[in-house]
Design a protein around this nucleic acid. Structure first.
Length: 470
DNA sequence: ATGTAC
């Protein structure tokens, strides 16, 4: 495999073997060197039937299930294009929601501990347990799977204005709850409105630096302002859907004459019963994840109103694990493509018709959750964005959970963060240790590379004031 | 990421 640098922050993997298109990695040399075991996966994805243009990787690329986390690939259904659950990931529609408070850091300081003590019991989290909303029966769960944040708002959990600031208006079309298996439904029923574990979190943050005041203002952000960032996904429901549909596709691949370099890249034509079934179930999980973030946002709003007298307005809600049917210009023609983004964020450019009117001039907000205890970023899509208007999604691991937990004790880590002025409410010491910042890449380097590669631009940097950890 | 392995 030959990897050559062919631009600033841009490397090219020449097609070889089963590759139908080249690979393109947007990264600095340093970031690339921390992810060399994922480059083979970028090359493998280039072998998917119907892939268009290139197999792309974002600056935070790292090893994933079959398809690298940080990977972007678009396929053309009219050219035998496939959809691969591995190209979306187990945590379907995992994503980030950012809310801006009407108070600044100085206003929050005297009541920070009250806010954190309010959030602690109000944000269900950790493996398995707890949920904000227990659906009363199949009808309510179906509403969530079909309507996402929109259904949650209809049921009184939020306001109409929230939906304007959600990707897809808060609900993905074409969800098919009938393709969500019984086991996925059972797992999902008890977890509506819960954070989960791992790198999922709810953080109280401060706007530490603004790089573009006009665009920040359009997003509703200004210096020193307090924000709340929520990072979570579709919990056991999305996980079970991925498992079920990978299995179903694996069994059918020989019949479609599809061969892939890695079994974990199981896939089916977009226009096939298996492809449509997965996309319908995936959309249902995407709506579940959005309702999940909507409900946790409401929980945070109640606490902020009570403990700080503050209001939280939605900045944006965007997923970083999803496949979407989108129209793109390729080789001078307009084509409808199935765009897989796994650990990659859609970043629509200024003027894009899918943006709400009040964000159209600024471009789409892109929300980058940093590693626990470090910075997070707000970015914006740029004109002439690359990789089907995509950019990075976060820091990306460099050390395994096991290695991270061996390096530091959770209590020590908490004490270190509290000494740095960050309030911490953890759900387990082991879980906290697994998320030690030194087990991750430097999110600032990732963002610099994304900007340098022409994928996005920086709008603001946020720093944590309080961490509620899954 | 995940009732951290059917």
């Amino acid at each position: 495999m030959t990897v050559v640098q062919d631009g600033p922050y841009r490397f090219r993997i020449e097609p070889s073997g089963a590759m139908r298109v080249p690979g393109v990695v947007f990264a600095s040399r340093e970031l690339l060197s921390t992810a060399d075991n994922a480059i083979g996966q970028v090359a493998n994805v280039a072998a998917l039937p119907g892939i268009v243009d290139a197999s792309y990787a974002m600056p935070d690329v790292h090893l994933g299930y079959g398809f690298a986390i940080g990977g972007v690939a678009a396929t053309d259904p009219r050219d035998g294009g496939v959809v691969s659950p591995g190209g979306v990931g187990f945590d379907i529609s995992c994503g980030v929601r950012l809310m801006a408070a009407d108070i600044d850091a100085a206003d929050l300081a005297p009541v920070l501990e009250d806010v954190m003590d309010g959030l602690d019991p109000a944000v269900p989290r950790g493996m398995g347990r707890g949920a904000v909303w227990r659906p009363s029966g199949r009808e309510e769960l179906t509403g969530i799977l079909t309507g996402g944040s929109r259904y949650a708002v209809q049921r009184g959990h939020g306001d109409e204005r929230d939906l304007l600031r959600c990707e897809d208006g808060g609900a993905v079309a074409d969800a098919d709850p009938g393709q969500v298996g019984e086991r996925a439904v059972e797992r999902g029923a008890g977890q509506v409105g819960s954070l989960g574990s791992g790198n999922h979190f709810l953080e109280v943050q401060r706007v530490a630096e603004v790089y573009d005041a006009d665009v920040a203002a359009a997003f509703g952000l200004s210096g020193d302002q307090i924000c709340v960032m929520i990072h979570c996904g579709s919990r056991g429901l999305g996980h079970q859907i991925c498992t079920d549909h990978v299995r179903a596709m694996e069994a059918r691949m020989p019949r479609y004459g599809i061969e892939v370099p890695d079994r974990q890249l199981a896939c089916a034509p977009v226009d096939s019963p298996e492809g449509r079934a997965y996309l319908g179930a995936m959309a249902a999980a995407a709506n579940y994840a959005r309702a999940n973030r909507q409900l946790l946002a409401q929980a945070a709003r109640r606490v902020f109103r009570r403990a700080a007298g503050a209001r939280l307005d939605l900045v944006y809600d965007v997923s970083h694990n999803l496949a979407k049917m989108e129209d793109h210009d390729v080789d001078g023609g307009r084509r409808r493509l199935c765009v897989h983004r796994k650990g990659a964020t859609r970043a629509l450019p200024p003027g894009h018709p899918d943006l709400p009117p009040d964000l159209r001039e600024a471009g789409q907000p892109v929300l980058i959750p940093g590693t626990m205890g470090t910075a997070s970023y707000v970015l914006a899509g740029v004109p002439d964005g690359r990789a089907f208007y995509s950019t990075c999604h976060g820091a990306g691991r460099t050390r395994s959970r096991h290695q991270a937990a061996r390096g530091v004790d959770g209590r020590t880590l908490r004490a270190r963060m509290e000494a740095d002025g960050i309030a911490v409410r953890a759900s387990s010491w082991r879980g906290l240790a697994e998320e030690a910042p030194d087990a991750y890449k430097d999110v600032s380097a990732v963002v610099e590379a994304g900007e340098g590669a022409g994928l996005c631009r920086k709008i603001a940097r946020l720093e944590p004031v309080g961490v509620v950890k899954g």
